[in-house]
Design a protein around this nucleic acid. Structure first.
Lengths: 355, 355
DNA sequence: TTGTACGCGTTATCAT
DNA sequence: ATGATAACGCGTACAA
């Protein structure tokens, strides 16, 4: 008698069912060429032993792990959290589990994560590295050897990319504000050299240019990061002699700070100042007045991304890398209104409505 | 010559370095009994071949996967997202990666996740099932056979548990409000039959009792879930003849709705109504006035939880299950003030202070 | 200190 | 349709 210790293996199942291991394997993997009576015997034996397939052995032998790796800077960022949830659900339907890793913007850790993805034989990866420009990271991504989708990063590598068209939505927002009469439009972004910020600034300038407005450098606020406190910076912005009458700002963490700063300055939305959020935190929809925003459709992003990834996973021939752009949408809500009668008057308090 | 195809294995490294596979393995696993010259040769060979250890093979042979499983209802819940980030960082330091799964409250999916955790030989798991009372889930958790920490759930199983003392913090909050003179205190919670809600209601009632106040059933608002829109329900609450003068509500998604509803009713915080948030969304700290809250110290939770888990992983003998309770803290901020002069302002005249 | 040989649990291949 | 057996890549006794 063999040791009773440890978990039952496929062999134990075969013995108990009185068949060969090959047959058990065929039952497990749902091959169509197994006799119904044999299948029945095997399934009963599996139940009886409470048999669990050993994923490591399966991976070793079959050379695939049924796992997809996901590397984000931080799931605590609601954008990534929501995306992850959708990714996971869709991948699950395709039979995969997801290994998540937060890089926390540490390039060294990003390298290790990518290396682990290789060791662990991820069949595909979805990544948004924090360090677009780090040569080591670029190199690692380039030679990953795993089907990959890069999420909203400008990296010059031969991998599929899924990009958000920040510029377009931003431009639409600016043009709408300009049409409402605003010419002093401020922008609050993070100072990181990363694609989303660069593209947003591009769109911002493009929008102004399209309406013949000129960018006032003092209306461009750069926070140290997208999770930095913004209250003081915005108060300073709004106390300028010629304060902006419209404000476009990062969503998520920063947005609440901005709203508070506006209110602390005694300004009302949209009566005194119009507001647009970049990205769509729950806060934007639930706030009264509701806050206009520029954002991607997360369901669309996830759908497209997973589709790209699965396609690449199915066809591993070195076909040229794809680059898909999903649009950002300017969603108009109550926070945008016409220019106050006393345009950019320092602090006048009249309630005329000029349309 | 052997096939150039596929990734290099430990054998290729051994061949190139002119040593045995055993020696390479010893180098990899940092055994102390390897000659420095040999180690050098091996390491060079590994670099030259860009060798990656095969995690599946390693797991199969060594019987451990260096992986911890994490099952939450939803990472898009900021509480879990933040916890996950800390867990991951701490586990990484201990040499583990984390497999994350969102159960989305689906009991069937929870069973599958737990089963996968077994197949994949997780060395430990941290779980917060959505279905505390589901017998199948209970059964699966009970017989998991993996070191586990259950997070803030009342499950009668022989596994370590890490519980949040919701009741205590809630009681403190209520007592503080009572001391400020409030006797009509409302509570907005979700209608789920889950530990956090139950304990909060317990603490709520305990607080009232301790101050000789009686619970008015019409001041207990039960939302369908903790992510349901709350605006209308709160407006109805505040339009009652004898409206509450203080309000304790779920944090996260719901909080913003509540604040908006309060403001829509023309009430001011804390002048007309005091507010306390359950849980500590960023919103609570950044809002002006800042919002008092009842919450756990996430860093402490993570620290304690990981410690419990690692201890259990190190000592797999069937020692009795541990049950640790982390305190919730009532953090007083600007949103709590004394009872307005005109108690129940809308219709009532002043009331006595009863202590 | 270093090398050899076997086994981990599974799938794939070749017989039958 | 089913059985026997060789890999898969690594760890680890045990021998040298």
């Amino acid at each position: 008698m063999k040791a009773r210790t440890g978990k039952p293996s496929i062999k134990d199942v075969a013995t108990l069912a009185g068949v060969s291991v090959g047959s058990v394997s065929r039952v497990i993997n749902k091959f169509d060429n197994v006799g119904p009576e044999l299948r029945e015997r095997v399934e009963r034996a599996m139940r009886e032993l409470d048999y669990r397939l050993d994923h490591a052995a399966q991976t070793l032998r079959s050379r695939n792990s049924r796992t997809v790796g996901c590397m984000f800077t931080d799931v605590a960022n609601p954008l990534y959290a929501k995306l992850y949830r959708i990714f996971e659900a869709k991948l699950r339907r395709a039979g995969y589990m997801v290994l998540l890793a937060n890089s926390l913007n540490d390039p060294q850790w990003e390298l290790e994560i990518l290396s682990m993805f290789q060791s662990r034989r991820m069949e595909g990866v979805i990544i948004a590295p924090g360090n677009e420009r780090d040569v080591a990271v670029l190199e690692a991504v380039e030679h990953l050897g795993i089907p990959a989708v890069i999420l909203d990063r400008d990296m010059d590598v031969r991998q599929d990319q899924l990009l958000f068209d920040h510029s377009r939505g931003m431009k639409d927002a600016i043009m709408h504000l300009a049409d409402l009469g605003h010419h002093d439009i401020a922008l609050v972004v993070a100072d990181t050299q990363t694609r989303p910020m660069r593209r947003r600034i591009e769109g911002f300038k493009a929008g102004l240019r399209a309406k013949g407005l000129k960018a006032r450098p003092e209306l461009l606020v750069r926070l140290p990061s997208s999770v930095s406190p913004a209250f003081d910076a915005v108060v300073r912005l709004l106390e300028q002699p010629a304060r902006p009458t419209a404000l476009v700002t990062l969503g998520t963490i920063v947005l609440a700070d901005v709203v508070n700063a506006i209110s602390a300055c005694g300004l009302r939305i949209p009566g005194d100042i119009s507001l647009v959020s970049l990205g769509e935190p729950d806060f934007a929809r639930s706030h009264r007045p509701s806050i206009s925003s520029v954002a991607v459709d997360l369901e669309l992003v996830a759908e497209t991304g997973i589709e790209m990834l699965l396609a690449r996973m199915r066809n591993r021939s070195p076909s040229p890398s794809r680059r898909t752009v999903v649009p950002t949408q300017f969603v108009l809500r109550e926070s945008c209104g016409p220019l106050p009668a006393q345009a950019s008057a320092t602090r006048r308090r009249d309630k005329d409505r000029g349309q």
